[in-house]
Design a protein around this nucleic acid. Structure first.
Lengths: 109, 109
DNA sequence: ACAAGGTACCTTGTAACGCAAGGTATCGAT
DNA sequence: ATCGATACCTTGCGTTACAAGGTACCTTGT
């Protein structure tokens, strides 16, 4: 199952950040609300670090209402462009896999 | 792009074999008719070898009309079950990713 | 002032699988 | 016997998701 997240997880993160800015821990929680996207900090923090390095997100430290300071992440224009490009690829990929599985559906019914 | 095929490619192969039996090279050609599933022998032969080892497919050598003999692959009951299980996971995963990207769609429109 | 619990961030090593490149083998035609 | 086309195969590599362990900060209680 984790193999399916490969290549797609980073864009799920970018898609969340397209809505609003999040801090790291929040992203883990938000993604994990869906079983299919269940992930952990050990995955998200290195991923966010790479996205920042690639210029797809930018960060900002802020104090927290209670507890340690939080690192907020925001999409950059490059990140938004990467996300748009991924959408096209994802649609094509999804339709391809759906097409193969649908023909199976017909057989099992 | 190749990362998206991770975890899903093997089930695309199983889905093709659910329709009818194929020989190895044919599978490469059939998959590669769709850009999103473009792959190569270097990928498919090791994958088929693993599927056979895992008992999801079975093989049969046959002479060819012209050229070298062909190794035909067929789904086993275990393979069919694995495929059905994957379908559930794929649907959940696809909907999760679609959900994230759809909210993006709303924003860009 | 100090300790503990909760929250938040981070790093590193591991594993799995898709891929490319190079290789061998068989068959028919010349 | 040689060559071209077809078919199969193997191995090392690269990428990314993950787990486990770690550090740091803030609030609360003693």
């Amino acid at each position: 199952m984790s193999q399916m997240r490969r290549g797609a997880l980073e864009y799920c993160v970018l898609a969340l950040l397209a809505r609003r800015e999040y801090y790291g821990f929040e992203l883990v929680q938000e993604l994990s609300r869906v079983d299919a996207l269940l992930t952990s900090e050990g995955t998200i923090y290195p991923l966010l670090s790479r996205l920042r390095r690639e210029g797809l997100v930018e960060t900002e430290w802020r104090t927290s209402p209670a507890g340690p300071p939080r690192k907020y992440y925001r999409l950059t224009p490059a990140g938004r462009a990467a996300l748009a490009a991924f959408r096209q690829q994802w649609i094509a990929f999804r339709q391809a896999v759906d097409g193969l599985l649908d023909s199976l559906e017909g057989e099992t019914k």
